[in-house]
Design a binder for these strands. Structure first.
Lengths: 249, 249
DNA sequence: TTAATAGTGTCTTTCAGACAATATTAT
DNA sequence: ATAATATTGTCTGAAAGACACTATTAA
């Protein structure tokens, strides 16, 4: 702000109308695949295309708008605990002229990490929302391909230096399950032994529940110990992606 | 988007007016101090308070709006090379209802790193803009205190894993000058010997010009070698801040 | 029994940080 | 001459990554 332009009698009608929406990159892991929540567009423009869920920001904070939108599309209700465990953060704002053919629309994009969620109930309020593996989420409406790409890159980077991978897991999880989350999001396998030692050595990443899983892995192995998310907000030292060009030029 | 709400005859006048602006956290280093560009507000609200420079996003991308705003406030002109060397990135969007008492305003905040710039010419177009050491930039208008805080934290974090410190330096610089930039932004001294070795060991951080400065330090010492920014986009391994609580809980 | 998994141990290499040493130059 | 600075060297400890090993369990 600080615009002398509208200090004195500002007339809204004198300016071209703009709209502000949120678009949501909601990620979850289903069947060992990283999935994003998409909606089917019924009408033009981009009728028949899939899009990120989103909507107008009403008389609320952008954060609240994003959370509301997520709740509506997934059918989750506040107060049941699931929605409360979702990690939500602002991603970036997209506002190129022409990104929406109808009018000037600025979209504040959000990124959400959710533990494995059920298929949205088509009945509730979710027009037609469903989880799609990210590799198959192409040819989206508007500039949503690039919003999704930005969201994925952010998510992958965040796993390196924050404990957010636990946001994809249930309340209690094994080290193997956590490793699987990293593998799925990063798209590459991690060395089991080194990962195990690393996770336990980073202070505050996970804490032991003292419990042991009731059975071992699907194809054998001892019963693993159970952990829950720790209280760290940042991982130090970080857990860096193995395959990365030594430095991105 | 994907809002069925405005697929059919959408009437702009039916919605409360919103405005979209940019606010700029422009940082530079002057006299070994980290400074931010502020403007003086002449009229209400917050008359007499200082604010981040900003303005409406017109028929242009938000990035272009931010760059235009920076050029206007600093008096810099495109094509002279200085503005082209400024690093600009989107910071975050602020849109809480009530952040501007006049109407609903969403502000797409930007962060800029500039090499030491002259005091803006009051005459040009800059209403009344000047550089202020960041510690003295308090009690800003609107929610600009928190935008500035977010910008500073982003800047400090970015120095760790990107070569952006070079954006504060001139075309050619010495390792000492680079170290001074880190010290000023982070607010703590760095060990000269270790910093020197570290910078030269990270691939693509800096490249030698083959030249040597014409004179040594202000209080003696050999003539240092000159370097320019390398082609790395990320520092690997990163250059982490020395004083950091082992992990932020 | 077989094969897969959980968890631990060891070794090598890399790197950060502390500290020292030497050479060079402004004052 | 003195003091500050540039640059390089050395050492220690932390940590990453490769690899090996044992114990445990599903099928």
């Amino acid at each position: 702000m600080g615009e002398e332009e509208f200090l004195t009698g500002y007339d809204p009608a004198a300016y071209p109308a703009v709209a502000v929406t949120t678009d949501m990159v909601a990620l979850t892991i289903r069947d060992d695949r990283l999935c994003v929540l998409l909606v089917e567009r019924a009408e033009h423009p981009f009728a028949g295309h899939r899009a990120l869920p989103g909507g107008f920001v009403r008389d609320e904070t952008p954060d609240a708008a994003a959370l509301r939108e997520l709740a509506e599309e997934t059918g989750l209700r506040a107060g049941e605990g699931v929605l409360e465990r979702v990690h939500l953060e602002q991603l970036k704002t997209y506002g190129d002229p022409g990104r929406d053919p109808r009018m000037r629309v600025f979209s504040v994009a959000y990124l959400a990490f959710a533990p494995s969620l059920p298929e949205p109930l088509a009945g509730s309020d979710a027009s037609a929302a469903y989880w799609v593996p990210v590799e198959e989420a192409t040819s989206l409406a508007f500039d949503h391909d690039s919003i999704l790409a930005d969201g994925l890159e952010r998510a992958r980077a965040k796993l390196e230096y924050t404990p957010l991978a636990t946001a994809f897991a249930g309340d209690e999880f094994t080290i193997s399950e956590l490793r699987k989350i990293y593998a799925v999001v990063w798209g590459e396998e991690l060395h089991a032994g080194n990962f195990h030692r690393k996770v336990l050595s980073v202070p505050g990443f996970v804490e032991s529940t003292g419990q042991t899983a009731t059975r071992g892995g699907e194809r054998g192995g001892p019963k693993p110990k159970l952990y829950r998310a720790g209280d760290a907000k940042l991982l130090h030292p970080a857990l860096l992606r193995p395959t990365r060009e030594d430095d991105v030029r």
